[in-house]
């Protein structure tokens, strides 16, 4: 028996906020422009950040068959709307776009916390990190700004009443924690399988509410000055499979790693 939060008619009305980032597809070859200070978005396909897709999928599983809602929020300019529509097509109830470039983790977390303060969500899910900045900063920052508990890397999430049980990733294992509403969790692999939108979802996404909000002012504490890419490795040294054992000697005497 599920004992989730219910309304007067006995219907479950859980309200979940899912944060989504608009990021380059995982197959993208990365390059930079303007003196290596800016990502070269030319010809790049953008997607919902893969970890955020996991968060969205889990949120949708949790409200399935109930009167609960899943709101997705993105901090981005108008170019992110196709990504937001995709989240609506996957099944989100409605969406909010904060109209500003996502400058850094603090900026994004402040925008989301400002909206969350107004809207009283039961809990907030995000991906554990975005695959562009990889900061993993936003979930814990939102929680700190709201003064609520959080789990930054959550592998499993179940709800009973108004309490979640979460498997938190730790080195070499997991920690099982109990955490009351409201809270923030960063979704990691294993929490859910990402969902693919169906035709009905795609059609209905066009008419689902997407509210645009203006950003709140945030102090500029930091700035990315430039990017560079890893140096290519030298030519690979091939070892004949017949003398595979030679590799061990090379790792010891030449690479000096064993």
């Amino acid at each position: 028996m599920r004992t989730l939060k219910k309304n007067k008619r006995g219907k479950i009305t859980m309200k979940i906020l899912v944060c989504i980032s608009h990021v380059p597809d995982t197959t993208t070859k990365i390059s930079f422009i303007e003196n290596n200070s800016k990502f070269n978005a030319a010809g790049v396909q953008f997607i919902i950040n893969p970890y955020d897709e996991i968060a969205l999928a889990r949120a949708l599983e949790l409200i399935e068959g109930t009167e609960g809602t899943v709101t997705v929020i993105n901090v981005g300019d108008i170019s992110t709307e196709p990504t937001i529509r995709k989240a609506l097509a996957i099944g989100a109830t409605d969406a909010i776009r904060v109209n500003a470039a996502p400058r850094d983790g603090y900026f994004v977390a402040t925008q989301i916390a400002a909206i969350a303060k107004e809207m009283n969500f039961d809990f907030i899910l995000a991906g554990r990190e975005s695959i562009d900045y990889n900061g993993g900063q936003v979930p814990a920052m939102i929680a700190e700004l709201l003064g609520i508990p959080s789990v930054s890397i959550a592998k499993k999430l179940t709800i009973e009443g108004t309490t979640a049980t979460i498997d938190r990733e730790i080195e070499g294992g997991k920690e099982i924690v109990s955490i009351p509403f409201p809270f923030v969790a960063g979704a990691s692999e294993g929490m859910a399988e990402p969902k693919i939108p169906n035709m009905r979802g795609i059609m209905s996404a066009r008419t689902k509410p997407l509210v645009v909000k203006e950003a709140v002012a945030v102090d500029l504490l930091q700035e990315i000055k430039s990017y560079d890419t890893p140096k290519p490795r030298g030519q690979v040294k091939l070892i004949s499979p017949d003398n595979a054992g030679e590799l061990i000697e090379l790792l010891h005497s030449e690479a000096k790693v064993i």
Partner: peptide, 17 residues
């Protein structure tokens, strides 16, 4: 200097505070 784009690049971030 930190990683960025999941290991495909590095970012040089100026901390101003």
């Amino acid at each position: 200097k930190t990683g960025a784009y999941s290991g495909k690049a590095f970012a040089h971030i100026e901390l101003k505070s």
